[in-house]
Simulated assay, not measured.
Amino acid sequence: MIGLWVVLGTLALGLVTGVTLALRNGRVRAARRPDRPLPTAVAEAVDPTAAVTLVQLSTTFCAPCRHARAVLSTLADRTEGLRHVDLDITQRPEVAQRLGVLRTPTTLALDANARELLRISGVPKAAELLDALRPHLVRVR
């Protein structure tokens, strides 16, 4: 009987964890510490001529990273003042560590001064991201 309770408890815990992760996937969050200095690789990726640069932190064998790249590059192509840069951190774990990134893809929205505006873990939802970025962009087509 105890074995049955252990199995049921494990299943319940797995279900709660799965639902929590699914709800957090792609959600736009405010920057934790917007004035924190960025790692050099990320700071160099910022386009100073763009109002917002989306820096996608990816790894080599990450399937959701390819989907996020498609969403973000399409959004950047059709939005004035928005740039997308994909930064592979497979060989640079110190970048993820300094930024507090626990999963890929994670996307940072940075202004022209390399200040973090917001962050997305997982594959972003284009409409939700565009709404969150609207105050920082000059004009959205």
Rank of each mutant, 00 (worst) to 15 (best):
R27E: 15
R27Q: 15
R27G: 07
R27P: 05
V28N: 06
V28H: 02
V28D: 01
V28P: 02
R29K: 09
R29I: 00
R29V: 04
R29T: 03
R29H: 10
A30V: 10
A30L: 12
A30E: 13
A30C: 07
A30R: 15
A30H: 10
A30N: 11
A30I: 06
A30S: 15
A31P: 05
A31Q: 08
A31L: 07
A31I: 06
A31E: 03
R32W: 07
R32Q: 07
R32F: 01
R33Q: 15
R33S: 14
P34N: 03
P34R: 05
P34L: 05
P34C: 04
P34S: 10
P34E: 08
D35K: 04
D35C: 00
D35V: 04
D35H: 11
D35Q: 12
D35S: 11
R36E: 06
R36N: 01
R36T: 03
P37S: 08
P37V: 09
P37K: 06
L38P: 02
L38Q: 02
L38A: 03
P39C: 09
P39Q: 10
T40A: 15
T40Q: 14
T40L: 13
T40W: 07
A41E: 12
A41N: 05
A41Q: 11
A41W: 00
A41K: 05
A41R: 12
V42Q: 02
V42A: 01
V42S: 01
V42F: 05
A43H: 04
A43Q: 10
E44W: 06
E44D: 14
E44N: 12
E44C: 02
A45W: 01
A45F: 05
A45K: 06
A45D: 01
A45H: 05
V46K: 07
D47H: 08
D47Y: 09
D47C: 10
D47S: 13
P48Y: 13
P48E: 09
P48W: 11
P48G: 11
P48H: 12
P48N: 13
P48S: 13
P48K: 14
P48T: 10
T49Y: 10
T49F: 11
T49L: 13
T49E: 15
T49I: 08
A50D: 09
A50S: 14
A50W: 03
A50G: 08
A50M: 09
A51N: 10
A51D: 15
A51M: 07
V52Y: 03
T53D: 01
T53R: 03
T53K: 04
T53G: 09
T53A: 07
L54G: 03
L54K: 00
L54A: 06
L54H: 00
L54W: 01
V55R: 00
V55H: 00
V55F: 02
V55L: 07
V55A: 02
Q56R: 05
Q56D: 11
Q56A: 12
L57Y: 01
L57C: 08
L57M: 10
L57D: 00
L57S: 04
L57K: 06
L57E: 03
L57H: 01
S58D: 14
T59M: 14
T59N: 07
T59Y: 04
T59Q: 15
T60F: 12
T60K: 14
T60P: 03
T60V: 13
T60N: 12
T60S: 13
T60D: 13
F61G: 13
F61V: 12
F61R: 14
F61W: 15
F61P: 02
